[in-house]
């Protein structure tokens, strides 16, 4: 009599899993390998299943090439395909859907100075990531693929985070005092 419908029993488990970063990390790893196995015929590079910086570059440069007829550099897989890789557009839409469904969509404004800082930081981070050939996510994929230069990137990134976290701590202490 008191039997719950299956969905409500599955739901708590799904909600727990969906909220755990390790679940998403494992999922990205497997799906990136799957998408390479599926799509690599369209063109390289390898270990390119998911990357925020590179896929943004491919999306922007690919669409600019199509619309304005320019010849900006992008990865072969995006160059050969009908449209460039769309994963970053997916991340934006997926994040928006999730935030709206769970009522976590909040407009947070900053100052004009903040916008300038974030805008130039965006330019800087993308260029640094492109010089290396990937954002932190592609670095992880490349590590999994067996590229040792990506391990160096991750170690150096951790060192950069330590310095940055130390600076944030100092700033917080100054503001407290």
């Amino acid at each position: 009599m008191n039997q719950e419908p299956p969905l409500t029993r599955i739901h708590p488990l799904w909600s727990q899993l969906a909220r755990h970063p390790a679940f998403l990390g494992a999922l990205i790893g497997i799906l990136a390998a799957f998408s390479q196995a599926l799509l690599i015929s369209a063109g390289g590079p390898e270990a390119y299943g998911f990357c925020v910086a590179c896929h943004t570059r491919d999306l922007v440069n690919g669409l600019t090439n199509i619309i304005a007829g320019t010849n900006l550099a992008l990865a072969a897989i995006s160059k050969n395909s009908l449209l460039p890789v769309m994963s970053v557009a997916g991340v934006l839409i997926g994040g928006y859907i999730s935030a709206t469904l769970h009522r976590e969509h909040r407009i947070k404004k900053g100052t004009i100075k903040d916008y300038f800082i974030y805008f130039f930081a965006g330019i800087l981070v993308l260029n640094l990531a492109m010089i290396f050939g990937g954002c932190p996510y592609r670095a992880a994929l490349r590590t999994g693929y067996g590229d040792f230069t990506a391990v160096l990137f991750i170690v150096a990134m951790a060192a950069g985070v330590v310095l940055g976290a130390y600076l944030l701590l100092k700033k917080a202490e100054r503001e407290d005092a």
């Binding site: 998408s35 998911f50 896929h55 897989i77 449209l83 994963s87 991340v91």
Partner: peptide, 22 residues
């Protein structure tokens, strides 16, 4: 593959974006 690249990556991105927000 050239036809499926945008579709597959978009689907993957939607899933990742949803879970990353969660």
């Amino acid at each position: 593959a050239v036809f499926f690249v945008p579709l597959v990556t978009l689907t993957l991105g939607l899933l990742i974006g949803y879970l990353a927000q969660r």
